[in-house]
Design a protein around this nucleic acid. Structure first.
Lengths: 326, 326
DNA sequence: CTGAAAGCGCTTACAG
DNA sequence: CTGAAAGCGCTTACAG
């Protein structure tokens, strides 16, 4: 910039004005500065700019796995909102590892992102307290913050499961399995709660052998589903706690002699093309992301007030697998 | 930092040493500085750091659509490599819009990313010349740079299609459709070339009504496949130019009275669970991303030499839909 | 309309 | 082992 000023024979401030398109410069001067910029191949260094101004016009997104279709849709939505607000987006996957979440979030903070959107992996978000105190906005999405009062945008997990399980009960099922993700994950716990409450409300007992919580690795899910289909009183329906469970459960059910009903949490591509097509309780990941990002930018624009918790509802999509009679 | 120094009663440089874990500070002094840091809630500002040091320890990734499973796998792989090198990742979707690609790439450059990984949407990458001259490394992935000599990591698209089409010919098909993406997209052109060459090598004529290039919107693909299945001499097999085309084609084929063979470019989740399961020529998006990112970091570590073009091969996965006899 | 000075928060030589 | 000075490349008041 100094070189540009020298070459154009003007002051530093004038170059700054031209570069930023500020008014109050003679067209003639603008011209001279422009030529100098081109001749020298000048490119403004935004790091220096950031140092002087408060905002960096960037936000950070920490999520579970960028390669998971659910989170990649969410990311894309966050990206669009950030773009609308002139912000760039840092992304990072925590891989469900609390330390990695913290590492990423703090690294983004050290770069002085204006705000963070976080899908929590950690059980304790107090490490963000100093950052938030220093003015970085944080919105949690898909799961709430732990040990920290903060904005959160969630799906009504228990309510969604309630819809799905009620649907199975209406088809005549009594012995309904619930296969979910690890208990410590907030969404998994909420979904399990939805299942238990619905069964209780319908006056149906739950045999603990019908419930299985743990990693969604195919081997585990496959073993559990297989086990539940054996014995004198096998389950006649399966509620799958997320899309990964659904897919694995489906692979098992397809090979069963008698039909078993399936309803899954989360929609997934091609669910309608499978046979039977899969009935699901769909979340809207793009809407989750969009809502969270919009809330974040409202905070950045100065909206104060207590932390908000927004809940989006799930939607039952009937396709066939959930309508197998019990 | 100044405040920390004052409070600890030491010089600025000493604080810097402690913050960066540099040697040459008495444990006693370290202790005092640490307490001051905690008391003041000090957080190092990496923007200032970046301004002094050369590197920003960040890279930018511009791709087509973060929500597309192909690109989200690629992103995740780039992210992992960046992480291994201590770098953060900016991501942005061009949505196949050349201007948006340029906007994103230049915005990343203004933030002084160390390097860029780009899935091109633009037909002219000369706009990056000044950035590259200024020391920003750039590696193109999935598609090569246009009008610019640069590193690129690609799939052997023509070769992959050759494998798939040869497979169909072996099953006895003669009238094989090719439905691809827009012609201006490099990969689409290469795949079409693979199709034409394979047909020619087998001595099979290509009726131009069997070839359709254009947007992968479901409506267009559906109309084209339907059209090709009509008339006295309909096609007996379809080669789908990418995963989106495959899915739509499949929806049409499922409703046909007589079986029609299908081979698709790109693998996709659940392809094996459909009936028939879909035979594909699979790319490895994670490997594309990893390879590109590794090349980028090698450049950043000082590897010189002419631009490289790496080609990964596709892999035919036989599942059923491609084995329908012709 | 234009510019010189001060400062954002750090690091890099350099000196003690 | 420790620190004062200069500077990274910009912007923010302020003065002309």
């Amino acid at each position: 910039m100094k070189d540009v000023a020298a070459r154009a024979g003007v002051g530093l401030k004038t170059v700054s004005r031209v570069v930023n398109g500020e008014p109050g410069v003679t067209p003639d001067t603008v011209q001279r500065v422009q030529s100098a910029i081109e001749a020298l191949g000048f490119r403004r260094n935004d790091s220096a700019r950031v140092l002087r101004k408060g905002r960096t016009a960037s936000v950070g997104l920490v999520l579970e796995d960028l390669a998971d279709p659910f989170y990649s849709s969410l990311s894309r939505a966050v990206e669009e909102v950030a773009r609308d607000h002139g912000s760039l987006l840092f992304t990072g996957s925590s891989a469900e590892d609390p330390e990695r979440e913290q590492e990423l979030a703090l690294a983004f903070c050290a770069r002085r992102v204006d705000g963070l959107v976080i899908v929590p992996a950690s059980q304790d978000h107090r490490y963000l307290q100093p950052e938030i105190a220093a003015g970085i906005a944080a919105v949690f999405v898909d799961r709430p913050a732990e040990q920290l009062e903060a904005d959160a945008v969630l799906t009504d997990n228990a309510g969604g499961v309630r819809e799905g399980v009620t649907h199975l009960i209406r088809q005549g099922h009594r012995r309904i399995a619930f296969i979910g993700d690890q208990r410590r994950i907030h969404t998994a716990g909420e979904r399990l709660r939805g299942y238990r409450e619905t069964m209780a409300d319908a006056g149906l007992p739950v045999d603990e052998s019908w419930v299985s919580m743990g990693p969604t690795a195919a081997e585990r899910v496959q073993a559990e589903v297989t086990r539940m289909l054996q014995g004198p009183e096998p389950v006649t329906a399966v509620f799958a706690g997320n899309n990964r469970v659904s897919v694995t459960a489906l692979r098992v059910l397809v090979n069963q002699p008698r039909p078993v009903a399936l309803v899954g949490f989360d929609d997934f591509e091609l669910a309608d093309l499978l046979s039977p097509a899969v009935t699901v309780v769909a979340q809207d990941p793009a809407r989750l992301g969009r809502t969270a990002a919009q809330l974040l930018f409202r905070r950045l624009e100065g909206e104060t007030g207590p932390p908000q918790r927004l809940e989006l509802s799930g939607r039952l999509i009937v396709r066939g697998s959930g309508e197998v009679a019990g």
